[in-house]
Write a protein that binds this DNA or RNA. Structure first.
Lengths: 255, 255
DNA sequence: CCCGCTTTGTGCGTGCGTTCACAAGGACAT
DNA sequence: ATGTCCTTGTGAACGCACGCACAAAGCGGG
């Protein structure tokens, strides 16, 4: 302790910690709803599904907001975490893509309750423009730049198909958006200084499948999954840069 | 190298690697669509948005499937990764919750194209039962256990509200599901041996807000965000278990 | 057959994240 | 005022992950 006060000693909060703060916040909100005034690291950790030592270390990065022998004041801790995450101000969010996912996002209550305000819902498809979703009128994507500037949008959400995502991203960036949440299954290219977070629904399923397979594999012995289908063409190399039309080595029908 | 062959030398693949394999897979599919037969680690890494050394190390965990001086055979690598992830078999998935999110998931093409088959879409709400979504008839949640057993469901997706999530989870588990993908904003309690992956839309936004705030903070100097609203009641402790009405010690305003 | 070019596969150093275990500190009872 | 009890905050050890940089290995040309 170099500082006498209980201020965040260091502005560098580990990424891993930042990612968990919202979880703690949610658990704390649950506690206030139940009228709990004070919570120990052990209890809060259980509610958040983490190790209590990890929780304490995480919280210690924001400052010394607990009372030894007692625990943390729930209300106070909520405020401190919210402030650290920047949730004490409200953030204007624009969602591009009013398909199933875009509509689901617009209707998602978790946004509004955390200081996020859906400033616009945009789509290219004419038939969707003008429709009302979650109290919002769907606007045409042409309006993207105008909307971002006029409504002070600082976070862009991409809920389009993979094909259109990069274009939307570029337009967000050139309009001044520096934080983007991407649901499209593509790797976005952005300049330095722009943050992109990715949520890929199918990736999560694939990770689950991997573990599920492994559980099953244990019961069946190793190598149980080789050749469930004919192993498609082992390396089968022929020339250095074979042109596309060189489809001579047909081999067996791969997969 | 202890093994002469090019089989996965070690069955322990790092989690971080597993999480990236689906990304590589997607990039590889993009390459086949463009007719590219062979790819170097440098190119593939660029397409996947990672470091090329990391990519090579990741792939080395599955075995030695590249050719030095040439690169990787796209088709072959796709097969190997797919097999490792368990995508060569098809997985029956049940989605509970036919709200906006549930419907979005059912319509999401990324599932089917990766070996996942939506076996059922369930909801408690009577008004939704019977509706057709993505070629599926919405069934009542009562059917959960029956559906899981009869259709060999091995992965459960929870797209309900926070309130119902734990119940649905418990029912999945007791019906024998050991892999769960949770979209509800709660920490699920599951027994040993059950894998849960969590996707929380609002957490991602909160992480973005944190970084966005930090960018803005740099320009405004430190402490710019203190007291944008009155700092709510510093610890204000009095007794061990103070009733809500005990509000006396104001202290100095802590922070 | 040999040589040089290209790209893989990996040994190794470094840094981050997690966990243990305990000293420091505050509250309450006596 | 003092001692006991409880919980925080953190020093230190450990383990995983990342990235550099290079040796090993295949390919094509001469």
């Amino acid at each position: 302790m170099t500082r006498p006060s209980s201020r965040p000693r260091d502005r560098g909060i580990p990424e891993a910690t930042v990612a968990r703060l919202p979880v703690y916040l949610r658990a704390l909100h649950g506690l206030t709803d139940r009228g709990v005034p004070t919570v120990s690291s052990e209890e809060l950790a259980a509610a958040a599904g983490v190790n209590s030592a990890k929780l304490r270390k995480d919280l210690s990065h924001l400052g010394s907001y607990g009372t030894r022998g007692v625990g943390y004041d729930v209300e106070y801790l909520i405020y401190q975490i919210s402030r650290e995450l920047g949730l004490t101000q409200d953030w204007a969010v624009a969602i591009v893509g009013a398909g199933n996912l875009g509509r689901a996002l617009a209707n998602y209550g978790g946004f509004v309750s955390r200081g996020f305000r859906i400033a616009a819902l945009l789509d290219v498809q004419e038939s969707l423009v003008g429709a009302e979703v979650a109290g919002l009128r769907v606007e045409h994507s042409d309006q993207l730049e105008a909307v971002v500037r006029q409504r002070r949008v600082s976070i862009g959400v991409i809920a389009t198909s993979a094909a259109g995502a990069q274009t939307v991203c570029d337009r967000f960036v050139s309009a001044g958006v520096t934080s983007i949440l991407n649901f499209a299954p593509v790797v976005l290219n952005v300049p330095e200084g722009v943050d992109v977070r990715k949520v890929d629904l199918s990736i999560e399923l694939q990770i689950l499948a991997f573990h599920e397979q492994r559980k099953a594999a244990g019961a069946l012995g190793p190598d149980w999954n080789v050749s469930v289908e004919p192993p498609p063409a082992p390396p089968e190399r022929v020339g250095g840069r074979i042109p596309v039309d060189a489809v001579d080595a047909a081999e067996e029908e791969g997969r």
